[in-house]
């Protein structure tokens, strides 16, 4: 029975999580690993055997598990994240439609715990991209031609580092070029300040209350019977 142990785990978990949520993103530099395959889904990013926990912890080991390890649990030597230069990347430069499929946020928690601070790609699945932002993981969407250039620079260990500046909305590449990217202000502010979104919304409690009263007045069948 693990359940009685929960209270003991919670404080550490809570501390980790606060740290996590409050880590703001301003300017981050590091290694970028290329992962050009398109449609990498969240089943691949975080396979099912890692979904059975009740905390957010311990997910780094599950990231891209079947790409990193073979059937016997041995590292696949040719996979990019197993190469010496790409072992501890700060960024992943990914293929189109990254994060499609299941809504599991475990995929994002795992990537963060693995050390990833931003994903750079052309397009991301919508639930996945919301999950990233909610966890302080930046997603940058670029034109395919621009992304192809970053992919090829990062494929070379001599030019695989870059800096992402969210304040300036730029990416500085190893060849000295600077690329600008767009991001909406809600997402940008959330990442820059690491806000508690629930707290922000609770500021509107009175509005929510008033709205709800009016909605139920107009569509009374929407009101669920209160539970004892």
């Amino acid at each position: 029975m693990l359940l009685p142990l929960l209270p003991a785990i919670w404080p550490t978990y809570a501390a980790c999580r606060k740290l996590d949520a409050m880590q703001p993103f301003t300017r981050v530099c590091g290694t970028a690993a290329p992962l050009p395959q398109s449609n990498i889904d969240t089943d691949v990013i975080m396979p099912k055997q890692f979904l059975k926990g009740i905390t957010r912890e311990g997910l780094a080991s599950g990231v891209l598990y079947d790409l990193r390890f073979d059937d016997n649990g041995r590292e696949r030597g040719d996979f990019v994240l197993n190469l010496t230069t790409y072992r501890t990347p700060t960024f992943l430069v990914v293929g189109e439609n990254f994060g499609c499929g299941s809504s599991r946020e475990h995929a994002v928690w795992g990537l963060k715990q693995y050390g990833i601070r931003a994903l750079i790609g052309t397009s991301f699945a919508s639930i996945f991209s919301d999950n990233c932002i909610g966890n302080g993981l930046l997603v940058v969407e670029l034109e395919p031609a621009t992304l192809a250039r970053i992919q090829s620079l990062c494929a070379d260990p001599r030019s695989n580092s870059l800096c992402v500046d969210l304040v300036e909305q730029t990416i500085l590449l190893a060849d000295g070029t600077c690329i600008s990217f767009a991001i909406d202000s809600m997402r940008r502010d959330g990442l820059l300040h690491g806000r508690d979104r629930v707290a922000s919304t609770l500021h509107y409690s009175a509005d929510i209350q008033a709205f709800e009263t009016r909605l139920w007045d107009e569509q009374p069948w929407l009101k669920a019977p209160a539970r004892a």
């Binding site: 809504s103 599991r104 946020e105 994002v108 639930i127 996945f128 919301d130 999950n131 909610g134 966890n135 809600m186 979104r197 629930v198 919304t201 609770l202 509107y204 409690s205 929510i208 709800e212």
Partner: peptide, 18 residues
């Protein structure tokens, strides 16, 4: 529509979503 766990928490606490 589907949401991630952070939004599940947001929804539980506020009955709303951004």
């Amino acid at each position: 529509f589907g949401i991630g766990t952070s939004d599940v928490e947001h929804l539980l606490a506020t009955q709303t979503l951004i």
